[in-house]
């Protein structure tokens, strides 16, 4: 079990999935292009990652593409914190 992906996935479900919405989020579920996370709400995801993993993600790298799935987010985090 990849702990990083688990933490990210749990946050995404808690933060973005409305009560009564039975959509499942797995590692490759499209988050932004799939309409689960909008560009505004991405801000809170970036903040969460920065606080949780004590990293700084430059705005230029916090793109909708880089945030589009749990797997891609995990990849992004590891770029700044390889041991995460």
């Amino acid at each position: 079990m990849d702990e990083l992906k688990k933490v990210v996935r749990e946050y995404v479900v808690r933060e973005y999935i409305e009560d009564g919405d039975d959509r499942e989020v797995n590692d490759t579920t499209p988050l932004i292009s799939g309409g689960i996370v909008d560009s505004f709400s991405m801000v809170s995801l970036k903040r969460f990652l920065e606080r949780k993993f004590q990293i700084q993600i430059p705005d230029a790298q916090a793109t909708p593409e880089a945030f589009d799935s749990v797997a891609k987010i995990a990849e992004l985090v590891r770029r700044f914190k390889p041991d995460a």
């Binding site: 409305e18 009560d19 909008d38 505004f40 709400s41 801000v43 809170s44």
Partner: peptide
């Protein structure tokens, strides 16, 4: 801190503002 279902014009106005943007689940 905006509700996630606010009107498009509010979203545009927020984009023009330098303050941090955050959202909450609709009426939650």
């Amino acid at each position: 801190i905006s509700d996630r279902l606010v009107h498009a014009s509010i979203v545009d106005g927020m984009r023009l503002c330098k303050a941090m943007q955050d959202t909450y689940k609709h009426s939650d």
